[in-house]
């Protein structure tokens, strides 16, 4: 579903991703953990090209979407093709990023209507179904500012699902939430995992990683230091840095 080969990314002279190789299979839930600044967000964002990698190749759903060498695009893939493939990736942000001038329902309906060109009726049906799924049918006509953080994040998940993505990317979806609101978002994510959604989740919720992840990746300083089943990572980390990191946050 996702494949990264020899991916490097620098901001000016700061190397943020170093030789990243990663494959995610269909239906897999992979959690990425690691200290702040280790490049977790950048890795996620280079999948849907919110960041452009410096070199390496990115495949989504077996299609090459970006191939670069020395910051030069050597794949020459049309931007239309790129947005097509990227629309198979749904993304959920730490700060929700809902559209504040639209109601909850309009937020979720927007992309089916404008990108998939569904009719208003079809888009609304799809949006209502998704809002039901995240338990927010009764909030459909509210503006985002009237919702709690947990509710906003669930709307953001519904909005991402409205494009019927094959893969969902989560970048610390619960980090901006009050502790008592974390659960409601994690529950929605667990539900998605159970349905077989392919998920790549950057998180500090070790309980979630332990319970839901098929694999956990530990990143440090722009590198993937290890990747393993959660029980191995948590109980028996193979790397000193992993052990240090886990002992600091658990």
């Amino acid at each position: 579903m996702i494949k990264l080969e020899n991916v490097y990314k620098s901001f000016d002279h700061l190397e943020v991703l170093k030789n990243i190789n990663l494959t995610v299979q269909k239906g897999e839930v992979v959690c990425i953990i690691g200290p702040s600044g280790s490049g977790k967000s950048t890795l996620l964002r280079s999948l849907n090209q919110l960041e452009r990698i410096t070199s390496g190749s990115v495949y989504i759903d077996n299609e090459l979407v970006d191939e670069r060498s020395n910051n030069k695009d050597i794949s020459k893939i049309s931007s239309k093709k790129i947005s097509e493939v990227c629309s198979e990736l749904g993304m959920v942000f730490q700060r929700f990023n809902l559209f504040p001038h639209m109601t909850v329902l309009e937020n979720v309906m927007l992309s089916p209507m404008k990108i998939k060109k569904l009719s208003k009726q079809e888009s609304m049906e799809r949006a209502l179904k998704l809002l039901h799924k995240v338990g927010l049918t009764d909030k459909k006509d509210e503006y985002p500012s009237k919702l709690s953080g947990g509710q906003q994040q669930r709307v953001a998940i519904a909005r991402a699902l409205a494009m019927e993505p094959k893969i969902m990317l989560f970048d610390e979806p619960t980090s901006a939430l009050d502790p008592e609101l974390v659960c409601e978002v994690l529950d929605v994510m667990k539900g998605l995992a159970k349905e077989g959604m392919t998920m790549l989740v950057v998180t500090h919720e070790m309980g979630f990683a332990r319970e839901v992840a098929d694999r956990v990746i530990f990143m440090d300083n722009g590198e993937i230091l290890e990747t393993d089943r959660p029980e191995n990572i948590f109980n028996n980390p193979g790397h000193m840095r992993t052990k240090e990191f886990l002992s600091r946050i658990l």
């Binding site: 919110l50 990736l89 993304m91 990023n97 559209f99 927007l110 404008k114 953001a156 494009m163």
Partner: peptide, 25 residues
Amino acid sequence: KGQWEAAHALGLSKSQTLLYIIIPQ
């Protein structure tokens, strides 16, 4: 910036993003 990013992640083009997301705000 998060508004641009959310729109990009949904697959909206730059002009759609301006029209539906950025300009109204």
